[in-house]
Design a protein around this nucleic acid. Structure first.
Lengths: 229, 229
DNA sequence: TACAGAAACTGACTTCAAGTCATTCATTCA
DNA sequence: TGAATGAATGACTTGAAGTCAGTTTCTGTA
C-alpha cells in the first residue's frame, strides 16, 4: 500500500507551500522585518508548525534563496546547451547575470544579503551544504567556459580561469548591487549612470583577458549583434 | 564662568567613552550579537543612559563606522599630500585600501556590513548625512587623482574618472570581502589564492585604463619598486 | 465500524533584547 | 541651604524567535 509514499509526498508539498509563503513575505519585507508569525499566517498554519519543517527563520530564508540560485543556474545551463562560438556564449553568460538581476530582483537581493557572514549563525549545516552545491554548479559552468576560451585561443592562457571567473563575477555583482541600491545617489550627487559604468567595466574586463584573436571575434560579434537589431 | 563649557566638554567625552565601549563590543560580536546591555556594562552606565546620547543601536554602530572611514580618509589624504608622480600616487592609493583592510579588519567589516540597505531603517538622518560626508571626501580624493592622471596623459581620456573610481573600488572591495570570509573555501575547494586574484585583478584594471605613456611609467615604477627591496 | 497508537498541528508560554519613562541622584547657583 | 535643572537609572513595555504540552487528525487493525 502506498500510504507511506503519499504521506511523503504530502510532506514535501507542505514544505513547498511553506516556502511559497516564506518567499512572499521575505520578498515584501526582507529577512529582518519578516516575522515567523506572518509567514505562518500566509501559509495558513500555526507558527509552531513551521518549526516542524524548518529549523529556523534563516533556514527558511536560505531555502528560498536556493530557489533563486537554481533559476540562475538553469539560465546558465540553457545557454551552454546551445552550441555557439565561444565569444557569443561568454557574452550571453555575462548578460544572463544582468538579466537575472532585472527579472528576479528579489532573489538577487536575497543572494547578496546572505553573502554577509554575520548571518550564518542560525543556518543549519545541511542548508549551508545545499547552498554550496548550487554555488559550485554555477562556478563550474563559468570556469568550464573560460577553459574552453583558453583552449580555443580566445582568452589569455596566463590567467587562471577560476581567477578570471571570480574577477568577472565580483565586478558585475558589486555594480549590480550599487545599481540596485544607490542608482539615484550616483546620478544626482555624482552625475554617473551606473548602468553605463557596468557596461564600461565589463568591456574593460573582457578586453583585458581576450587574446588578439579573441578581440577580433569580439568586435565581429558586437558588429553582427548591432546589425541584428 | 566656564560651567556651561565644561559641561559641554564632559558631555562630549561621555559620548566618546560610549563609542569606545560600543566599538569594543561591536568588534567582538558584530551588530547582531552585540547587545545594548553589554555596551552599557562596558561603558559602566545603565542602558537607558546610552539612549540619552544615541538614538539607537544602529546609530551607535554607524558612529563607530565613521571612525573607520575617517582613518581611511586620513590615509588617503596623507598620500596625496606627498608630491609624487601620478602612477606612484595611484598605486599607493590602491595599496592603502588593502592596507586598511589588513590593519583595520574590524572597521572594514563594519563598513561593508552597512552597505546593505536593509539596515538603514533605524539610522537617524543626521548619522546618514555624517556618513555621506566622509564618503564624499573619499570619492573626491579618488576622482581628483584620476582627473590628474587624465590631464597628465597617463590615463585614457575616454573614460569618466568617477566611473573609473567606482570600478576600481568595487573590484577591490569585493575581492577583499571574499578574502576576509571565504579565503579557505577558495583555497581548499577551488585551489585559488584570492590574494593573488586581487593582484591580478588590479593589474588588469590598471592596464586597461592606462595610456601607452601611463603603461610605460607603470612598468618603470614597478621596476624601481622591485629594486628598492 | 470502533479504537489505539502515531503523526501532524496548535498556540500559549519562555526567553531575550531594544527601547521607554517615571523616579532618583547630583550639580549649580541664588 | 535648598530649589531648580540636568544627568542617570533600571524596572517595565513591546515584540519576535523558538519551544513544548496538549489537541486533533489520520491510519491500520480487530
Amino acid at each position: 500500500m502506498g500510504t507511506a509514499e503519499r504521506k511523503e509526498r504530502e510532506k514535501e508539498s507542505r514544505k513547498e507551500s511553506i516556502i511559497d509563503a516564506a518567499q512572499k513575505v521575505f520578498f515584501e519585507k526582507g529577512l529582518l522585518l519578516a516575522t515567523m508569525e506572518e509567514i505562518a499566517e500566509q501559509a495558513e498554519l500555526a507558527k509552531g508548525t513551521l518549526y516542524l519543517y524548518y529549523k529556523s527563520k534563516e533556514d527558511l530564508y536560505l531555502t528560498v534563496m536556493i530557489r533563486g540560485l537554481n533559476i540562475l543556474c538553469a539560465m546558465f545551463e540553457s545557454i551552454i546547451a546551445e552550441p555557439m562560438p565561444f565569444i557569443a556564449t561568454l557574452v550571453r553568460l555575462i548578460d544572463a547575470y544582468t538579466t537575472f538581476y532585472e527579472h528576479h530582483k528579489n532573489y538577487f537581493r536575497m543572494l547578496h544579503f546572505f553573502q554577509m557572514p554575520q548571518f550564518h549563525k542560525q543556518v543549519s549545516d545541511e542548508m549551508k551544504e545545499a547552498g554550496r552545491q548550487v554555488d559550485s554548479r554555477l562556478w563550474n559552468i563559468a570556469i568550464a567556459q573560460l577553459k574552453r576560451g583558453i583552449r580555443e585561443g580566445k582568452l589569455r592562457s596566463d590567467i587562471d580561469p577560476a581567477e578570471m571567473a571570480i574577477i568577472f563575477w565580483s565586478n558585475t555583482t558589486t555594480l549590480l548591487l550599487r545599481i540596485d541600491s544607490q542608482l539615484d545617489f550616483w546620478k544626482d550627487r555624482m552625475n554617473v549612470d551606473l548602468q553605463h559604468t557596468l557596461k564600461v567595466s565589463q568591456t574593460l574586463m573582457l578586453e583585458s583577458v581576450l587574446t588578439e584573436e579573441g578581440k577580433k571575434e569580439y568586435r565581429e560579434f558586437i558588429y553582427s549583434e548591432m546589425r541584428n537589431r
